[in-house]
C-alpha cells in the first residue's frame, strides 16, 4: 500500500530567519489516522500549512496521491480538507451558506443532500440558518469541520480539533472521525490531548524544533518505549528505603511511606520482579495489595522531547 502523502526534504524558514521545519521526510499511509504530536512551536501547524498550501515551502516537495502540491496544486488540494487550529469563521454568514460556499470553492457541483448529511452528522442541522457569530465556540469548531468535509475530501487535516471543546462534543467529533476513517478517509491530526492520540491514532509522529524525531506504529511505540510501574501498598509504613533491597535505584517510596513503586522496562530481558519480591520478603516487608500501570503516551512523549532537548534523540 503506497503512501497517500509523501513529504521529502521539506524545509521552511520564515522571513524572520526562524527555521520552522528542517528537512522533513514523512509518508502518510492511505486510510490511516496519523497523530502528529509536539510541543507548542514545534512546527506542527507549519507542516500542515505547507501540505495544504497556506504556507510556501523553502525547500523540498510534497506529493498528494501522486500530485505535486505546487505544480499540480488543483489535483492535490481537491483531495484535502483542512480544519484550522484557530476558530476562523465568517460572522454574518449562515451555517448553510458558509458550508455551501466551501463546496463551491473546491469546484464541486451543488449537492444539498450531502451538505444536509454533514450538518446532521455534526449536530448542526437545527442551526443551519443561524448566523455563525451567534454560535458557541464548540459549534463554530463543528462548522469548520463541516466546511472541510463539504467537498468530500479523501484526506482530512485536523489541527488541534478538540482544543476548547467540551467532553461530550469531543466524543461526538471522534465518532465522526471514526466514521470518516471507516469510509476510507485518511486523517492527520494534531492534538494536545495525548489520550486522544492514544485512543484514535494508528501511527504517531513526534515533531520537535522543526524535526520529526520519531514515527512509529502507536502499539509498537507503546511497547518499545513503554515503562511499567509496579505499585505495592505496604502493610506497615517505612521510614526510608532499605539500602540493601534489590533494584533500589528503580524503587521509590511515597511520602507517607506506605507505597513502594518499582519502575521497569517491559522490553528488558529480566524485569527483576521476582527478585524484588524475594528481596522484600527477606527484608520482612509485607504488602497488602499490588498493581501495575503502563506509561501513557504522554509520558513517552514528554520523555522523548526532553531527551531531544538535552542533546538529540537516540
Amino acid at each position: 500500500m503506497h503512501d497517500i502523502i509523501t513529504i521529502s526534504g521539506l524545509s521552511k524558514t520564515y522571513a524572520t530567519g526562524f527555521p520552522a521545519l528542517k528537512n522533513i521526510n514523512l509518508g502518510i499511509r492511505r486510510g490511516e489516522i496519523f497523530a502528529l504530536l509536539g510541543p507548542n512551536g514545534a512546527g506542527k501547524t507549519t507542516l500542515i500549512g505547507v501540505v495544504c498550501g497556506t504556507v510556501t515551502a523553502s525547500a523540498g516537495t510534497v506529493t498528494v496521491d501522486g500530485h505535486d502540491n505546487v505544480t499540480d496544486f488543483r489535483a492535490a488540494r481537491e483531495l484535502i480538507g483542512l480544519v484550522p487550529q484557530e476558530l476562523t469563521t465568517d460572522a454574518f454568514e449562515s451555517v448553510w451558506a458558509t458550508v455551501s460556499f466551501s463546496r463551491g470553492l473546491f469546484g464541486k457541483p451543488k449537492n444539498p443532500a450531502y451538505i444536509e448529511k454533514i450538518l446532521k452528522d455534526l449536530s448542526l442541522w437545527d442551526k443551519k440558518d443561524n448566523k455563525i457569530m451567534t454560535l458557541s465556540g464548540g459549534m463554530k469548531r463543528r462548522v469548520l469541520i463541516a466546511k472541510a468535509l463539504s467537498h468530500e475530501p479523501k484526506i482530512l487535516f485536523l489541527d488541534e480539533p478538540t482544543a476548547g471543546v467540551d467532553v461530550e462534543l469531543r466524543k461526538d467529533m471522534w465518532q465522526v472521525v471514526r466514521d470518516l476513517r471507516a469510509a476510507g478517509v485518511t486523517i492527520i491530526l494534531t492534538t494536545h490531548y495525548i489520550e486522544e492520540a492514544e485512543d484514535m491514532a494508528d501511527r504517531i509522529g513526534v515533531i520537535s524544533k522543526g524535526e520529526i524525531i520519531l514515527v512509529e506504529e502507536k502499539k509498537e511505540l507503546m511497547r518499545k518505549l513503554g515503562q511499567k510501574r509496579l505499585t505495592l501498598q505496604l502493610q506497615e509504613k517505612l521510614a526510608a528505603l532499605p539500602a540493601n533491597l534489590f533494584g533500589v535505584s528503580q524503587l521509590s517510596l511515597s511520602k507517607d511511606g506506605d507505597e513502594l513503586t518499582y519502575t521497569y522496562d517491559t522490553q528488558a530481558e529480566r524485569t527483576g520482579i521476582t527478585r524484588l519480591l524475594a528481596s522484600l520478603n527477606e527484608a520482612g516487608i509485607r504488602f497488602r495489595d499490588l498493581s501495575t500501570t503502563q506509561s501513557s503516551l504522554e509520558e513517552i512523549f514528554v520523555g522523548l522531547v526532553h531527551q531531544d532537548r538535552n542533546g538529540g534523540a537516540k
Binding site: T54, L82, T89, L105, F106, G107
Partner: peptide, 14 residues
C-alpha cells in the same frame, strides 16, 4: 483580518 483566507489559499483555485 479574520483568518478565513486559509480556505482560499488551500482551495484548488489559482
Amino acid at each position: 483580518f479574520t483568518g478565513t483566507i486559509y480556505e482560499l489559499l488551500s482551495a484548488p483555485i489559482s
